[in-house]
Design a protein around this nucleic acid. Sequence first.
RNA 1: GCCCCGAUAGUGUAGCGGCCUAUCAUACAGGCCUGUCGAGCCUGUGACACGGGUUCAAAUCCCGUUCGGGGCGCCA
Length: 443
Amino acid sequence: MIKKLKNLIIDKYTIRMRTYISDLKELDDGAQVTIKGWVQETRKIKNLMFIILRDNTGTIQVTAKKDKMNNYDQLYDITRESVISIYGTLNKKSISKAGMEILGIEIEILSIAETPLPLGVIDRVSADLDTRLNNRFLDLRKPENLLIFQFESQLLFGIREFMNRENFIEVHTPKIVAAATEGGADLFKVEYFEKNAYLNQSPQLYKEILISSGFDKVFEVGPAFRAEKENTVRHLNEFTSIDMEAAFIDDKKAMEYLEEAISYAVNRTVDLMQSRLEKNGYNVKKLETPFPRITYEKAMEYLNKKGLKLNFGDDFSPEANKILAEKFLGFYFITGWPADMRPFYTHPDTNPSITKSFDLQLNDIEVTSGAQRIHNYKMLEDNFIKKGLNKNNFEFYEKAFKYGMPPHAGWGLGLDRLVMNLLGLNNVRESTLFPRDRTRLSP
RNA sequence: GCCCCGAUAGUGUAGCGGCCUAUCAUACAGGCCUGUCGAGCCUGUGACACGGGUUCAAAUCCCGUUCGGGGCGCCA
């Protein structure tokens, strides 16, 4: 059957003005339209057939009648997920459930899908995430999955709009670097002609150099790479990071930029997409600022009251984060982390055992880490020694502190984690188009 | 790096020593059907990850391999 269809080719492609499915409701009954998209399903009754056609704005029923069309027989054999173009009449008095349909006049078959599909787009049986990711091109045809990335796009647009309004400059720093950013051994090694190089784990050092350059406020949206052998639902080896750094501000101001950026972007996106989000089972609530704040020490006391046995300097386990999430719900800051737990560039507080640092949590997941940074050259050198780092590896960075470096602060926000948590997804792989994890390198 | 768990048609599953010539759903193929909308009805195709072992007998038990899932550590 497929062979039979393949013989009718497809080199004839009539360009007509295309209407998106979601725009059909604006048109009058009886309008002549052309819609293009994927055949989501067919229901066939010999001389009458119904096609549910899908584009990235929605679905519409197309009714095809044998006696009203010249290529009905070809169409009758169409497979699910084939791509077609339909010229027909809009019927807004349809008895179909949507109350609207297209009565087909001429239909062009543009691409025929093989059968059976490796993954059903609307099948009633669910598929494992692994199967879905192996067939991601099909998985992303599901409207609820497409919507994740439309949501992410709008969210990021909102953040960019906010940052631009605040006079931040969007920058792009190298992802191939000579040395470890933060001294860890968790980088991917790459060949760089006759030298060794690494994929950058964070734009941190470059953001700070630009502060010394007088850019004043910078942000970057880009990939970050971590060669950690994680195996969890919230870790990836390549993820998208939104990084910000600003001169002459402290950790408190950095937190304000963060909560304002997120709440502006979320609220704007909810305004735009609320009904579609709800229809697809996503419940995103509008945000109010400021977000709650709790110090590391107060959080530790609270957790110990709840039966944990934490000492100063212990990180919060997933169990601890779940307990905190029950108390706070949504976004909240944990501030004042112990110096031993933070990278070398983190500015100490007046009590030097704690730092002017913060994490932003969304429920039980950390989405942002930030701090005021050290700007004093001597203090930075001391910290290299304290953290056991070889300062020779950081010469390109350290140099920027010798010739005029303002006080500054910033943060890094995990976009995939943010989207995952806002939409209530179970796995960060679902909010990543083509995730790279411990074992997955393809697609 | 450590610890658990899993692998049966395209997809998702039942079966857990002999009732297996392997269940069910969905998908797929063929047929009937001019208003379906989870379309319906009839017919059909299609699977025990790989290698070794135990046993009269292995989808089922054991060992190894490969692939996958989850938790921890760590982090965004």
